[in-house]
């Protein structure tokens, strides 16, 4: 496995990231209520749309070098890592160890039982109509946020690019891109397929961050 270039101890970030699960669960129910009125498509559009609005609200950032950017991301100082603890596994490969939605998902199951099937239906809808990268409905929000917030960051004057490689659901299922995309993305991240699987065993999300040369 490639050596980590940077990592943070997680303690302070965890404190910042912590939310009250009562609120998280009620937001899931809010989305479910929307789906009662507007169907799976409405549910998906709202999840994606609100992540876009959220990303548009965050301040813009500019970094001189790639190392400056990577350091800010793993130390939790960048808007890219506002809601998650990120580790760098290669120059352009990054992982999120604990999905920022996992606590809310656990609390939902603990408090009110099985997830409403609309979450799976919306995930499928997203994977078929937008991009095949979501393992759970929350991934739609998370990945959209990452994609949109990347547009607000420049490194060496060039816009940051983001591409999802793998996402693991609370059930253990992993969403991966089609073979042809996967090969290109892993190559760009500088990791082999085996290394990618090893990372997905330890982490919840694997993705690529880069700037075009």
């Amino acid at each position: 496995m490639p050596a980590r270039k940077y990592s943070n101890n997680g303690d302070n970030m965890a404190e910042n990231i912590e939310s009250n699960p009562f609120v998280d669960v009620s937001v899931y129910l809010f989305f479910e209520d929307i789906s009662d009125k507007q169907g799976v498509e409405g549910f998906t559009n709202y999840m994606v749309g609100q992540a876009q609005s959220l990303a548009k609200s965050v301040p813009e950032e500019e970094y001189e070098t790639w190392d400056d950017f990577a350091s800010a991301v793993v130390s939790g100082e960048s808007v890219f890592s506002s809601f998650e603890s990120i580790e760098q596994i290669s120059k352009c490969g990054f992982v999120t160890n604990i999905c920022p939605f996992s606590k809310a998902i656990r609390e939902y199951i603990k408090r009110i039982g099985n997830f409403n099937p609309v979450h799976i239906e919306a995930t499928d809808h997203f994977n078929h109509t937008i991009q095949p990268s979501a393992a759970h409905s929350a991934c739609m929000m998370h990945q959209t946020y990452r994609r949109e917030v990347a547009k607000r960051i420049t490194v060496g004057g060039k816009p940051l690019q983001y591409a999802q490689i793998g996402a693991k659901a609370y059930t253990g299922e992993i969403a991966l891109p089609p073979e042809s995309w996967k090969k290109v993305l892993l190559e760009k991240a500088g990791i082999s397929e085996t290394q990618g699987f090893m990372e997905m065993r330890e982490n919840s999300c694997l993705y690529l961050l880069y700037v075009e040369n």
Binding site: I17, S19, N20, V23, D24, V27, Y28, F30, Y46, G49, Q50, A51, S53, L54, S57, F83, E84, P100, F101, A104, A138, M141, H142, Y145
Partner: peptide, 13 residues
């Protein structure tokens, strides 16, 4: 992160 979504969700709604 789900909780933070409330504000943009409510704004949009």
């Amino acid at each position: 992160m789900m909780d933070i979504a409330i504000y943009s969700l409510v704004d949009d709604m």
